[in-house]
């Protein structure tokens, strides 16, 4: 059984749908529990949307490489893009405890990923941003 899913998409939001469907099929075929599937898909959507919206200084087509590896205890997702150097983990959610009128509507994506994933790492290598997410296959009850 194949234990790594690899996909390359371009920097267009509509490309996400086929990636999400492939991810769902791949993880469900391997009996990963529904909570872990949901969280991995959530992380992919939030991170890749962030790259597409904020990662590039031109209007050219760019490739984003995605790998989802199944290990015995965890799922490791890797997203690689050739945009400008950008570490989303340095973003802090502003006004997160503010009352409703002052509450910001943006910036929630990275915040919820930090909360729900077991590990999120960023590195810059060979002019590329590499984001790695780790999620346990089965969450403790």
């Amino acid at each position: 059984m194949e234990t790594t899913l690899r996909r390359t998409i371009t920097n267009e939001v509509h490309e996400l749908e086929s990636l999400m469907n492939a991810t769902t099929n791949f993880l469900e075929d391997q009996n990963v529990d529904a909570q872990a599937v949901y969280r991995v898909k959530l992380a992919l959507e939030e991170m890749i949307t962030n790259i597409i919206k904020h990662g590039y200084d031109d209007y050219e087509s760019h490739q984003i490489d995605v790998a989802i590896e199944l290990r015995p205890e965890e799922i490791v997702g890797t997203i690689t893009d050739d945009g400008h150097e950008f570490n989303p983990l340095e973003q802090e959610l502003k006004n997160k405890n503010a009352a409703l009128p002052e509450r910001k509507v943006g910036g929630l994506g990275i915040h919820i990923i930090k909360e729900l994933l077991n590990e999120v790492n960023y590195r810059r290598e060979n002019e590329k941003n590499i984001l790695e997410i780790k999620m346990r296959r089965n969450q403790p009850a």
């Binding site: 949901y38 898909k41 959530l42 959507e45 939030e46 409703l100 009128p101 509450r103 509507v105 943006g106 929630l108 994506g109 919820i112």
Partner: peptide, 20 residues
Amino acid sequence: TFMGSMGLRLFLSAAKALHR
């Protein structure tokens, strides 16, 4: 069945508007 930060934005924006 699925909701990401765009859904959260939708609800927060509506809540802020109605709060006024």
